[in-house]
């Protein structure tokens, strides 16, 4: 990259006061794990895996946080979501009942296939749905930014959250990433954004609660991490088709959840963090967080 990351000029010290993650390894049941965080358990039927992961991660981040209703109205939401994860069984149903002599038939698709899939499918894969489910279950009503699909865009969201906090437009920002990557369709998305050599795409969601440090301390809250540098640069490439994102997990590739995952770990361990992503679609972003 011929230009290094550009420094974000912080006007107020910003700090992480809560963090939480969800990394459902083989056998983990997000269908059950999400229930304690739902205001209305039956809404689970509207949720895809990325929605459940986001709610679980946000729930873990906000557990124990004193966030009264008036504070939730002034809590912003900044989220990067990974590639759209249509579920394979639903795609197979659509494809099977849309085929005629091995080719797509609009007559079969419109007359048969779409009647065989659950209408709720429409809700389960949309990139704005994790934000909806988190906002609805935790009452977050502040300004927002929801973006897509990689680690570079997460940094853009973080930068906007920092600016909104510094400008006093919001009092807290829930900043996170979610990626359902163990998915048939996402596999093809990752062909143009492959993780770095040897890294394995992993399902992940993580959120941090970011706020002005002085406000947190005034409430008697001791921050875990302080943001000391945030730099996001971009150099448009001729071929904006591939992405390489190292992350703190070494061989696990968390996509847009890369930074929030690393932050959650650092927050838990109360250690400083220097994080950087360089993506083949042109982002060069870095942040430094010191233990507060």
């Amino acid at each position: 990259m011929d230009a290094g990351p550009r420094h974000h000029q912080a006007r107020a010290a910003l700090a992480v006061t809560a963090a939480g993650a969800c990394v459902p390894r083989d056998g983990d049941d997000t269908m059950s794990a999400v229930v304690p965080f739902l205001r209305v358990p039956k809404t689970r039927k509207f949720m895809g895996k990325q929605d459940r992961m986001a709610v679980i991660a946000a729930g873990r981040a906000l557990a124990g946080v004193d966030l009264p209703a008036e504070a939730r109205i002034r809590t912003g939401f900044y989220l990067a979501v990974g590639f759209i994860p249509f579920e394979r069984p639903e795609i197979e149903t659509l494809a099977e009942h849309s085929a005629e002599a091995g080719a797509f038939s609009m007559a079969r698709f419109s007359g048969e296939a779409i009647h065989r899939v659950n209408p709720l499918l429409t809700f389960r894969c949309l990139p704005n749905m994790p934000m909806f489910h988190v906002s609805a279950n935790f009452g977050v009503m502040g300004g927002y930014l929801v973006t897509y699909p990689g680690a570079g865009q997460l940094y853009v969201a973080l930068q906007e959250a920092a600016c909104a906090l510094e400008a006093g437009e919001i009092d807290r920002a829930l900043v996170g990433g979610v990626a359902d990557q163990d998915n048939f369709l996402v596999e093809f998305g990752l062909r143009r954004s492959p993780p770095c050599d040897g890294a394995r795409p992993v399902d992940a969601a993580a959120f941090v609660l970011l706020e002005r440090e002085a406000d947190a301390r005034a409430r008697g809250v001791t921050p875990g991490l302080r943001l000391t540098a945030l730099d996001v640069a971009y150099n448009p490439r001729e071929e904006a088709t591939h992405e390489e994102t190292p992350n703190a997990g070494g061989h696990d590739y968390f996509g847009p959840a890369s930074l929030p995952m690393a932050l959650t770990e650092a927050f838990r361990e109360r250690r400083s963090l220097r994080h950087r992503v360089t993506t083949r679609d042109g982002f060069d972003a870095a942040s430094t967080w010191e233990a507060a």
């Binding site: 930014l145 929801v146 973006t147 971009y234 150099n235 448009p236 982002f283």
Partner: peptide, 20 residues
Amino acid sequence: IHRIAREHGLREPPMLHVSA
């Protein structure tokens, strides 16, 4: 966003919004 940035030489990080 990358096509537009390349075509017009825009060097600041592009923003993509997916809020329906």
